[in-house]
């Protein structure tokens, strides 16, 4: 049984200008011990997807349809009180830039401690022991649990966040751009730590990032989002080797590989569409180098093109060879 299964998730934001279709039809599953990478440019709906799963959408966000199934239960059918219990004990989240994600006036130990005490029936000293253990796990001196967030460096803070995310030993951790704000060396350390922890704790992860190279490093499965829609989904290997969607291909070309050889960087001309009034047909067609007339008329079907490898493009077959990347 997968740890989480998301089916046809549709999330809109209601604004004065109209409804923003931030996520329209998201499907994925994450198996135990796996890492699922969700990639796409800023504003493509990745973070909205994460907030939808956590039930933390801002007040104007509405989940219009779909299912989010964790442990066989659909979160969207739950009451707020039930969700409160599920949060952090079953699924936790590491936010982008732990700089502001930690409360500046409480010491970090307290912030971890409170969630343990809130969710579990343990004594304070047991909980405190666990906080120390978590600190050791993320390789921070346990004595620093009484320090305040501002006394940590950026990387250390992210470690604290990770320790906090693991506080109730959840099965699933969502990491929303966990390393974006960090410098390169620290990024690597954090990624290594996350991989390490995943192995040790048999964790499932959803890694949300705009940086495909990170996904290439860490993920078992990948979903590529564009303008609120999943355009390609499948195992990491095939996607990076034989992307079936022009956007995926362009995205892969837009990032340097951390380990791979130097390549000429492509960049994708234009900018993501306004989701209040998305383009007709394929949402990527205004920026797609291979666009044809049909692309602006009909929306491409999201199909399983190869076993376990899904894509949404009118010209999968025609472009298959064009998009294949050299290894």
């Amino acid at each position: 049984m997968p740890v989480i299964e998301v089916r046809d998730l549709v999330t809109h934001y209601l604004t004065a200008q109209g409804s923003v279709d931030a996520v329209s039809g998201l499907n994925f599953t994450v198996e135990k011990g796996q890492t699922f990478g969700l990639a796409g440019e800023s504003g493509c709906g990745k973070t909205t997807a994460a907030l939808s799963i956590m039930g933390l959408l801002p007040s104007n966000g509405r989940i219009m349809g779909g299912q989010i199934i964790i442990d066989g239960e659909d979160l969207l059918q739950k009451t707020e009180a039930e969700l409160k219990k599920i949060r952090w004990s079953k699924v936790s989240i590491v936010f982008q830039g732990a700089m502001n994600a930690l409360n500046p006036v409480l010491n970090v130990g307290e912030q971890i401690l409170e969630v343990i005490l809130e969710k579990e029936d343990v004594t304070k000293s047991e909980a405190l022991d666990r906080v120390r253990e978590l600190f050791r796990l993320v390789e921070i001196e346990p004595s620093r649990i009484i320090d305040y967030p501002h006394e940590f460096s950026g990387g250390m803070r992210q470690r604290v966040m990770i320790a906090m995310a693991l506080a109730n030993y959840p099965k699933l951790v969502i990491a929303d751009e966990p390393i974006t704000a960090l410098d390169v060396i620290v990024q690597n350390q954090i990624l290594e730590l996350m991989k390490d922890l995943q192995r040790k704790l048999d964790l499932s992860q959803i890694l949300i990032t705009h940086d495909l190279s990170v996904i290439a490093e860490t993920c078992d499965k990948v979903g590529i989002m564009y303008a609120g829609k999943l355009v390609e989904y499948g195992e990491a290997g095939p996607i990076f080797k034989t992307p079936l969607h022009p956007y995926t291909s362009a995205l892969i070309g837009a990032y340097p590989s951390i380990v791979g050889e130097k390549k000429k960087l492509n960049f994708i001309p234009g900018s993501p569409p306004n989701l209040i009034d998305p383009p007709r047909g394929c949402r990527f067609h205004p920026r797609c180098p291979y666009t044809k007339e049909i692309c602006s008329q009909e929306e491409p079907e999201y199909r399983e093109e190869e076993p376990g490898h899904y894509a949404a493009c009118h010209y999968v077959e025609e472009l298959r060879d064009t998009l294949r990347l050299g290894d």
Partner: peptide, 29 residues
């Protein structure tokens, strides 16, 4: 609107704790 409030909500804390421990303490400054 601060990120740490999102964290507090994500942690599934009770409303009372979110308001009076996390929000108020910062708002008191």
């Amino acid at each position: 609107t601060e990120d740490y409030m999102l964290t507090a909500r994500a942690k599934g804390l009770s409303n009372r704790k979110i308001l009076f421990k996390h929000a108020m303490r910062n708002a008191l400054l």
